[in-house]
Structure formats: C-alpha cells, structure tokens
Amino acid sequence: MQDIRTRLIEATFQEVFSNGYTGASLANILKRADTKKGSMYHHFPSKKDMVIAMIEEKVEKRIEKKWQVLAQTDKNVITLLISILEDTNSWDLTNGCPLGNLLQESLNQDEDFAKTLTDILDKWKKLFCDALEKAIELGEIREDVEIEKVATFLIASIEGALLLAKKHQDKKDFEVSIEQLVFYINTLKK
C-alpha cells in the first residue's frame, strides 16, 4: 500500500491531467487518494503546493523517463530519437502531454507554476541539446547543425502534434506531424 503522500501525488496527477489545474477538485483528489483534508495539510500547505510537488515528481519524471535513454546511449542517437518519436503507442494521444497541458493553462496565471514548468521545459531542451551534440560527435549529423534551435523545434513539433491529436481525438494528425518531423531530422544527417 502506498503512503498517503504518494497517493496524494498520484491522485493530484490524475485529477489535474483529466481536468486541468483550474478544474481540479480538491474533494476529488482526496477521494482518489482515499484520505482526508487533514492528511493532505500534513504533507502540503495548500492545493497549489501539492500540484507543484506533483509536477516536479510526476510530470518531470515522465519526460526524463521517455527521453533519458538518449543520454545513455553511445551510438545511433538519431535512430533512437526517431524510434521514440514513431512509437505511437507510447504517447497519450487522447489526453495530450501533461506538461503541454499545464503550460497552456497555467504559464501566465501563476509565477510559481511558470517557474516550475519553465524549469522542466529547459531541462527537456538541454536533454535534446546534449543528445544532438553527441550525434554530432558520433558523426551522425552535420557539424553545422544549430543544436539549440533544433532542440526547440523538436519540442515545439512534439507538443504541437500531441495538441492536434488531443483536439481531434485522432492519431492521424500526430502521425503526419511526426512523419514530417522525422523527414526534417533525416535532413540533418551527414
């Protein structure tokens, strides 16, 4: 059995991912976590603090888990990147990206959310920059590739593809977007 804090974080993730931060109900979170408000306040001073902890512990970890493999490989970085992109089953095309959803909803509403979300976005971008730098060192892509611009484009393309799939509840837009992104990535090869 998970401890109360872990259950609260998981319940907060499910509630916010389903309904957004603004629409997230504390009562629903407590019900999902099978706990009382007093237990929540023992671990978190407020709903906002609980959501920020959830973002750091769940959303950031999801991104790290998906993309960290690029940092761990010593060869075929671009092939690995493309295989992750093309693995349609590994994406939530119905609900979109938790980070992207929160960015759309909360970035301009709260300074603490903005900082937390921007930090995660910056870490994701750095992960892509490091992977692209490694691909240059391995001779997989051209040396003139502007890695920071490409990393930004990768994130924007992925988030846009997920948003389209979520909006239309259809994986076709995602697949077409990723197909074009892979085409672009292949133009970077030596």
Rank of each mutant, 00 (worst) to 15 (best):
E179C: 12
F17K: 10
W67M: 06
A53T: 12
V69H: 11
L102R: 06
W67D: 02
I155F: 02
K61S: 12
K47W: 09
G160Y: 07
T118N: 07
I178E: 05
K47V: 05
I82A: 04
M50C: 11
A53Q: 08
N186Q: 11
K58V: 15
E60K: 15
F153S: 08
G139N: 07
N19D: 06
L132H: 08
V176P: 07
K36T: 07
K171L: 01
I120V: 10
M50T: 07
F17R: 10
K66F: 08
E133D: 15
F183L: 13
K171Y: 08
G100I: 04
L81S: 03
K171F: 09
D34K: 12
Q104V: 07
Q104N: 14
T12M: 06
E57Y: 09
Q109V: 08
I55G: 03
G23Y: 02
F174S: 02
W124Y: 13
A24G: 11
L102P: 08
T187M: 01
E57T: 14
L188I: 10
N28Y: 00
A24H: 03
K31I: 00
D122Q: 14
E133L: 14
F153K: 03
I185E: 02
K172Q: 11
S18C: 06
L26W: 07
E140P: 00
K123F: 06
S177L: 01
V59C: 05
T118G: 04
K123Q: 11
L85E: 09
S157F: 10
D49Y: 00
P98Y: 02
C97E: 03
V182G: 04
